[in-house]
Design a protein around this nucleic acid. Sequence first.
DNA 1: AATGAATGAGTATTCATTCAT
DNA 2: TATGAATGAATACTCATTCAT
Lengths: 194, 194, 194, 194
Amino acid sequence: MTKHPPVSSRRYDPQRRDRIIDAALDSIAADGVAGTSHRKVALLADVPLGSMTYHFASMDELLMEAFTRFAGRISDAFEARLDAATDRHEALDAIVSLIHEDLQRSRAEHVVTYELYTLAARNPDFRSITQAWMRASRRALQRHFDPITARRLDAYIEGAALHIALDPDPQTTEDTRAALLLLTNAASPRPTPQ
Amino acid sequence: MTKHPPVSSRRYDPQRRDRIIDAALDSIAADGVAGTSHRKVALLADVPLGSMTYHFASMDELLMEAFTRFAGRISDAFEARLDAATDRHEALDAIVSLIHEDLQRSRAEHVVTYELYTLAARNPDFRSITQAWMRASRRALQRHFDPITARRLDAYIEGAALHIALDPDPQTTEDTRAALLLLTNAASPRPTPQ
Amino acid sequence: MTKHPPVSSRRYDPQRRDRIIDAALDSIAADGVAGTSHRKVALLADVPLGSMTYHFASMDELLMEAFTRFAGRISDAFEARLDAATDRHEALDAIVSLIHEDLQRSRAEHVVTYELYTLAARNPDFRSITQAWMRASRRALQRHFDPITARRLDAYIEGAALHIALDPDPQTTEDTRAALLLLTNAASPRPTPQ
Amino acid sequence: MTKHPPVSSRRYDPQRRDRIIDAALDSIAADGVAGTSHRKVALLADVPLGSMTYHFASMDELLMEAFTRFAGRISDAFEARLDAATDRHEALDAIVSLIHEDLQRSRAEHVVTYELYTLAARNPDFRSITQAWMRASRRALQRHFDPITARRLDAYIEGAALHIALDPDPQTTEDTRAALLLLTNAASPRPTPQ
DNA sequence: AATGAATGAGTATTCATTCAT
DNA sequence: TATGAATGAATACTCATTCAT
């Protein structure tokens, strides 16, 4: 009834690749990309060091897979939240709470996001991850808003979340809601019918 | 009785500290914080390796000074640009061009900015740099807009600049201007008098 | 009742061993013994990695077989060339062209030869390959020359081929021919009858 | 009065670079280039591992310096030996004993020589070492023989030394002397005056 | 005040070989 | 019989920092 693997030094471990990717994300959250090494990830994933480069040809390959998974998760959650909203009003509520949750939600996510942006700023491979993420966010917003508005909201969400995370005296949820409203009101000269 | 620089290799070099800081920024732009080392910076600044830890107690101290200088420069330019605007209309023009310039402006700046955010997300010392920067931006915006609006604009600027930098098909300057207008119009039913 | 190759990825592949040996030689030519690994050879031979140690108990066993095949090939060509000569004059022509061909002949051969000598210098197993090769060369030369002369020629051939390969300004074929003549003339005052 | 360095973990050690090069040669002689690693050389030279790449930017740089020193040593010895000869007769004696000494002389030299040739066959940087060596040998031979003869002797010496080293039943010194005589007689139809 | 040399701990990656399937 | 996965030991190399001079 123990959860420990058999004493055999050679394990059959089909989910190993998966576990390594999650361990890599944990490590990035804890110590950043700079603080992430094969050794550290191997330890977290409880796999031998030699296993790392067997499953991932290089550190970059591992980082790519890790950030892809990360972006997918956040993006899916974002989408699910917006899909659950039945009208614009609820959609805005969802956005507000997503922005401000960042604050509460283990700082980890914020940290990992910016690690990804830093890589993306320099490396096109990683940029394709952020681009897919951006596309997904806008698609989700387009369930409730026209494409132009979706893009505006997307930019504002990004900036507001960042500033809230870095600001010792961040804006209130009311402020956020008001700003979002302004950006949506404009989408059509007259109130969008729901 | 002017002091001639000694012929020896030990140079009288009062700007050395300064040059090291700039070299560090160049290195960060080129290879990221992760790719920046004492050796590399010493080479770029053309100073002996031992000089590095003589002038800066640690790598972190050097990074702090480098990012502080960087944020100051960008922030000053931002402020100068807004100060030069004589009315809201010009102020918005200035903002639009600042946001979109990011695209052209040596990608280096974008890259360094995100390196800083990544550090700030994890380390309060670096966070104080970004906070000062944020304060300065808002102060500059408050030359033309009320504090609430300034904060909204600031967030949007941040997000839009990021998305433009990462987006292969970025929004147009008109889009940007329109979004900014929405955020400012609402701040007060009628144009804020200066 | 012919046996069809199974559709599965497990192929019926009787020449596999052979292909691995040739792939090993290609790898040695391209990257040296030091740059040759199971992985690389398996890739070149298009066989699964696990197949390597299935067919060859160890890397050394593979190298032994590879160099044995290599020495055999070169040695056979040498012998064929000398056998085709009908008299001493033709034999010397054959030798001259063999020595100088080395230059043109894919540099690969030269490279592999010296890899083998390096192993032979240290390891008696590989030395037995070079010894057999040396014996075969002398035997071939003895078709036209007495044993003493054959040995002299063999040494000169070896040294001249090496120096020509390494010399940016190598000797001419006439030089080579003249040197060979000196070594043969002396062996016996008058042409050895066959 | 001990030869051991002070217990201080930080040593002042001006001959360290030198010692590392000699240790590298020892390692190459013992285990070949393939068996030579930073670790092993550091151990032999009694320097910390980190010291290795401080003094030599890369393994190749170390190998270059080691083989340069090696070739210089052998080449100088060769030259000294020939310079000491006062006539052709003594010169030939010197050559014969140099060729056959190879056999006795710690096999190490032979082994290191072939390691060098193997590198030279593939890498022009190392080839320049062997070329300088070849030039020096011929220059030394030209003290006693015309350039054409010098080149012939040089090739024969090379090949004979190699075959003697690899041959379980090598030629006698008389054989060697006879072959050398043949090659020198030809240089001029009549005995060269001294 | 300034620095070249030194160094231990760390990095990514490669590898021959083993073994469960 | 054949193999993909696994792994421990090793490799070259980097680095921030220390320290003797």
